[in-house]
Design a protein around this nucleic acid. Structure first.
Lengths: 252, 252
DNA sequence: CGGACGCTTGATGCATTTCAATCATAGTGG
DNA sequence: CCACTATGATTGAAATGCATCAAGCGTCCG
């Protein structure tokens, strides 16, 4: 179960565009397609912290994660890092523009991934319409994720951003059938900061606040347990936590 | 030239994934494909301010803009609006998840667009591999745009956000061969605010600041002229405008 | 066991949000 | 055609919350 069938080849999961009303991740590739992609794919093992490719570099391959976590990011003009996305098992990365990578990618944990050379993949796609259709679905999925990230960044309150971030991590874990109420946090505090658009100090302080209010509980620095999901959700919508009940709860 | 051939059918432009090193928008569809899509497309005329579809509604069609500007947005829990993207001529919108629209769409100006019913488009895509490939390219383009939006939102300074926003508008106009140094601003101040993640008041104040510093000049409320592109660019990277030269410019 | 790095905590300043009022604009009906 | 009104834009003053600077603490790896 854990291994979902001993590496049958590249695996892409996403919520379907049409069809089922369920919002669960489904395997987009058929066994046949996975076998076909295996032909052009090699398996890469990347150590934690290693850079996989750099922004602006010539696009040579697209990657599909088997295990581990990857971040894609841009280095801004002022040398700070903006993280676009965290990628997990069954995700695809290596986005290209005019033959160059549009961001850098780095392994957040040790990573195992399929590596598919761009030219080979391109011709495979041109030949196989259904395969291509499945890739479209995955791209739509990633587009939605990017939009959700935008929504997260639009929230001004630190509590709201972190609450959304936890929900995002939770989704990923539920989707990968690790349904526990303990959320694993594979990335560092500063990676989180670079993703949610705050300073590492604020991330730390916000964690502390959530913990002291009894909304979450930190098992250790890399794992949280959600104690009060309702209040966590409430943080997303309400400007301030209604910690002082004697505050007008008017329509805004 | 302006009409690029009197409506030959749906038109999708994006920067290519592979191939040319140029970063210009290219027509992704062949004349043949455009003709094929014409068969399933009808032309919709939407008045400024009208809602085209609503978040959560059943996905019935995908749209391709001929003229005008559209915004896609989510209504957040606190009733505020988060704008995901502004869409222009040759753009595609109607993103779907499990058969439902993932955001709402509204016409920012009067809009003319091709309307393609989802089922018909789906079967067309399944049959025509190359067409599908072209759609993939467009989706990648939109994904990159969403990431750029994320970068914009990550910038904390109001000046930096507005500078990036102007650059974005400029790109769109250059890409559509309206190469002037006067940028048209088709959307309202509050739409801008909802897109860049600030209050309308701050947008207004920031406009005023840019104007009084001589970096831009407002022709009227819906058009700016960039006077000093270098200083505008500088605002993106530097925490504060070097208005006081006696401030350590150290490496941080 | 040591050192480095990441994380936490503390104090201060400042930019932006907010609230509130005025001003401009565009669309409407007399 | 013009006055009128509703809506959006601007400006002002005050307060909040985050970034920043700086120092201390913990932990992981060599």
């Amino acid at each position: 179960m854990v291994n979902q069938g001993k590496l049958r080849g590249p695996s892409i999961k996403a919520t379907p565009l049409w069809g089922s009303a369920k919002k669960e991740l489904a395997q987009l590739l058929t066994d046949e397609e996975r076998a076909q992609l295996s032909v052009i794919a090699s398996i890469a093992r990347i150590k934690k912290g290693a850079r996989i490719y750099a922004e602006g570099g010539d696009s040579v391959a697209v990657f599909n994660i088997i295990t581990g976590v990857v971040k894609t990011y841009n280095v801004l003009e002022d040398k700070s890092e903006h993280i676009n996305a965290f990628l997990f098992a069954d995700d695809l990365f290596g986005l290209t523009e005019a033959g160059k990578y549009v961001n850098s990618a780095r392994a957040v944990t040790d990573v195992t991934a399929y590596r598919m050379p761009t030219p080979a993949l391109e011709s495979k796609l041109r030949r196989n319409a259904t395969l291509e259709f499945h890739v479209i679905c995955k791209l739509c999925h990633e587009l939605r994720e990017a939009q959700r990230h935008g929504i997260l960044l639009d929230h001004h309150s630190a509590l709201a951003r972190i609450a959304l971030f936890f929900q995002l991590l939770e989704q990923h874990q539920i989707a990968r059938e690790l349904a526990t109420h303990t959320i694993e946090i594979p990335m560092s505090r500063s990676d989180i900061a670079d993703y949610v658009g705050m300073s590492p100090e604020s991330v730390s302080r916000t964690f502390r606040t959530l913990s002291s209010r009894g909304i979450v509980s930190f098992v250790n620095h890399r794992a949280v347990k959600i104690l009060d999901a309702d209040r966590l959700d409430a943080l997303v919508s309400h400007p301030v936590e209604p910690i002082r009940p004697h505050r007008r709860a008017g329509t805004r």
